[in-house]
Amino acid sequence: MASIQKRGNYWRVQIRRTGYPTLSSTFDTKAEATLWAAQQEKTLSEQTPERVVQRLRDQDYRLQDAFDRYIVEILPGKKPTTQERDKGSIRRLCRDYGEVALAKIDGQTLSGMIRQWQSKGLGANSIRLYLAHLSHLYNIARKEWGMVELINPVELVRKPKLPQGRDRRLVGDEEERLLNVCQAVNPELADIVIIAIETAMRQGEILGLEWRHVNWLDHTCYLPDTKNGTARVVPLSVRAEEALQRQQQRATGKDGKVWKYTNDGMRASYNKAVKRAGIVGLTFHDLRHEATSRFCEKGIPMMTVQAITGHKSTQMLKRYTHISGKTLVDAVRGS
């Protein structure tokens, strides 16, 4: 039976049942105390003493404890690059909230965390990544670690809306100016830029390309390891194939990686070239946007474009696609 007593300005509840751990809590009002007592007595009648003990332990299981176990048991199944990214996000989450118990993070608490992240200038993409980590953690804890009474708080909150996709495209003579400067810096850099514009491959996919993955007969290259974790085949335009042929002539061997640049080295050289060309606000990733938009302007079906670019969904593909005004006018006027 529950014992409800007033202690100063609070109401204290104690529940004792043979074979079960003692449960206790304090409340501001007697009504709250009575309701909690009824709920706990109902739970005791439905659960074994062992299950009640486990439930109490679960209530003290900290976010840090859970993520420590997650890193050991779950992360090794992910790609190495994903593991490193996830570990960084997890460290930041635990730095601020590691001492908080999983059972204490409800929808209201998580909404407050989101507002705090936003006040620190964290973008929607970063916040949604944090929420994805938390959601996966709670689902694993429920399904695989026996913490069946946990409620996933991510399902109770509104996620920040993603910003509109970047709409930066090459305009005027920017492509010619950029390639001229790249050619002067390093002909290899110029051909990397051409590959990006012609294929919509990501920077990591381009620089990770190996000669054994280039199929000259089929005019394709094979990407066994992509950001999405799925391999894909990328068709090569005449211009892209010519760029690869030039690089093959420069190469001392026909095995190994196609390009000599590292990711950091290429990014630094590209940024310098953009600056020297007098171009403002054009990232290397914008060349992927440019290529994707050109595919759509050519009238290539959306599903085909998605297969070429490797976007997970047509919704994500649309964020990367920005049809030029001239193309829209031509489509309407039949030019």
Score class of each variant (00 low, 15 high):
residue 275 K to N: 11
residue 41 E to R: 02
residue 237 S to H: 05
residue 2 A to V: 07
residue 89 S to R: 14
residue 91 R to L: 09
residue 191 D to R: 08
residue 146 G to N: 02
residue 51 R to F: 03
residue 37 A to I: 00
residue 126 S to W: 07
residue 103 A to D: 08
residue 273 A to K: 01
residue 219 H to R: 15
residue 101 A to E: 08
residue 168 R to E: 08
residue 42 K to W: 12
residue 209 L to D: 04
residue 71 I to V: 13
residue 152 N to K: 03
residue 155 E to M: 11
residue 40 Q to I: 05
residue 62 R to L: 14
residue 146 G to M: 01
residue 231 A to F: 06
residue 268 A to Y: 10
residue 41 E to D: 09
residue 277 A to L: 00
residue 177 R to E: 02
residue 157 V to K: 01
residue 312 K to E: 14
residue 55 R to I: 11
residue 97 Y to M: 09
residue 162 L to H: 03
residue 124 A to V: 12
residue 125 N to G: 09
residue 166 R to W: 04
residue 213 H to L: 09
residue 212 R to A: 13
residue 59 Q to C: 10
residue 41 E to V: 07
residue 154 V to R: 00
residue 248 Q to G: 12
residue 129 L to K: 12
residue 191 D to A: 06
residue 103 A to C: 01
residue 24 S to W: 11
residue 333 R to H: 06
residue 87 K to A: 05
residue 96 D to Y: 15
residue 109 T to K: 14
residue 220 T to F: 05
residue 318 K to G: 02
residue 91 R to F: 09
residue 314 T to K: 03
residue 217 L to K: 14
residue 168 R to S: 01
residue 231 A to K: 11
residue 276 R to V: 11
residue 151 I to G: 09
residue 201 M to K: 02
residue 238 V to F: 03
residue 92 R to W: 11
residue 217 L to P: 04
residue 174 E to R: 02
residue 301 P to T: 05
residue 144 E to G: 00
residue 255 D to N: 11
residue 184 A to M: 06
residue 94 C to E: 09
residue 21 P to F: 06
residue 95 R to N: 02
residue 2 A to I: 09
residue 2 A to L: 06
residue 155 E to D: 15
residue 322 H to S: 08
residue 84 E to T: 06
residue 32 E to R: 08
residue 118 Q to Y: 13
residue 7 R to L: 05
residue 330 D to N: 15
residue 192 I to L: 06
residue 301 P to F: 07
residue 2 A to N: 05
residue 110 L to R: 03
residue 306 Q to G: 03
residue 303 M to L: 13
residue 19 G to E: 12
residue 195 I to L: 15
residue 290 E to T: 05
residue 80 P to R: 12
residue 65 D to Q: 14
residue 304 T to K: 08
residue 75 L to C: 10
residue 121 G to R: 08
residue 326 K to L: 13
residue 97 Y to W: 15
residue 6 K to L: 08
residue 279 I to K: 05
residue 108 Q to W: 08
residue 12 R to Y: 12
residue 186 N to T: 04
residue 99 E to N: 13
residue 173 D to M: 08
residue 72 V to M: 11
residue 151 I to W: 10
residue 172 G to D: 12
residue 75 L to P: 02
residue 311 H to S: 13
residue 131 L to S: 09
residue 81 T to A: 15
residue 24 S to I: 08
residue 299 G to E: 04
residue 173 D to A: 13
residue 215 N to T: 05
residue 73 E to Y: 01
residue 89 S to H: 14
residue 45 S to D: 15
residue 53 V to T: 13
